[in-house]
Design a protein around this nucleic acid. Structure first.
Lengths: 166, 166
DNA sequence: ATTTAACCAAGTAAAACAGTCAGCTAATCG
DNA sequence: CGATTAGCTGACTGTTTTACTTGGTTAAAT
């Protein structure tokens, strides 16, 4: 099993989408700046998220991505699965042919661990995360930083966007 | 976080040691054959296990490795930690400086997951595993296979070892 | 017609994984 | 004693994965 930046990025990006839902499609460029993730890397991750029917895309100006289901019906486990191909702790993908066709000494232990992790992660929906205090605090900080960035780069028109961010 | 062959091998080898405890030190060559793990790879893993004070070594003929504590006082989490440096799901090693010094959107989620996994794995001791029925069945099969191998390779003197294996 | 932003393919540096190879040292046994 | 056993060590190798870049194409809005 592996849980690396890839899976973490995917969940972070999906949560960003959930947090800013309602303002229409969110562009990957926005997510990239808010979350500090490379744009082209996000594109690769979202290709997989789209193939797994977790997001819908809108092309052209003003386009971006939207959750394909309501927040309460998307859990963390399926997001990680989508980019990482399974949160499985066994080496045999649960088949039990770990040691030349037979099951190895510790096979059942890894099965139990996999079940444990999967149960935990699939019990948490994006909606649950959005409601968490620590998430809301970070989101608020990020939105403020993003607004300041826009003021720095462009001269005045950022004030309109600042309002939108609040 | 990563849970790969490395950590699985380490736990499997430690469990093999626990299962055959009492017959004096167990050589890595024995573990290698029973568990189907490369001998020199085992040597690398056991160097780490020894540095982390999980096993003691005896050199010379009839030598091998022994658990450095009783089975009930060695848990799966510390074995994996020893070879893998931590069962941590965060990217910042729990520090919270994931996004350019600040905590990222999903930091607390990964902390929770790490806690969950660690709690599960550290609640299981080698003694617990030895007592499990599925473990005992696999161990019995492996001991029989090993005895048959010895009969195949040497001519007759294996019968003495066969007795020892039962 | 131009801009926006999704989409796609290929390539890359660095790391980790899984394992090999060669040689060393300490202990035992004949 | 000297041969054997088995732990110990370092360096090295092929492969895969990670995280990311480059350089495009296509669809939709202005």
């Amino acid at each position: 099993m592996r849980l690396t930046t890839k899976g973490r990025y995917a969940v972070t990006a999906m949560l960003d989408l959930a947090l800013h839902e309602g303002r229409g499609p969110i562009s990957l460029a926005d997510i990239s700046e808010r979350q500090g993730i490379s744009l082209s890397y996000l594109e690769q991750l979202f290709a997989k998220l789209r193939r797994n029917d977790l997001v819908r895309s809108v092309r052209g100006p003003g386009g971006g991505y939207q959750l394909s289901r309501e927040q309460g019906r998307i859990n963390v486990a399926e997001v990680i699965d989508a980019v990482n191909e399974s949160v499985d702790a066994t080496g045999c993908h649960g088949k039990g042919d770990c040691q030349s066709g037979q099951t190895c000494l510790t096979h059942h232990l890894w099965c139990d661990l996999s079940d444990q992790i999967h149960a935990f992660l699939s019990s948490i929906s994006l909606c649950d995360l959005v409601k968490r205090k620590d998430v809301q605090e970070v989101a608020l900080r990020q939105d403020r930083e993003r607004a300041d960035q826009l003021i720095m780069s462009t001269g005045e028109p950022a004030s309109a966007e600042r309002k939108a961010a609040v």
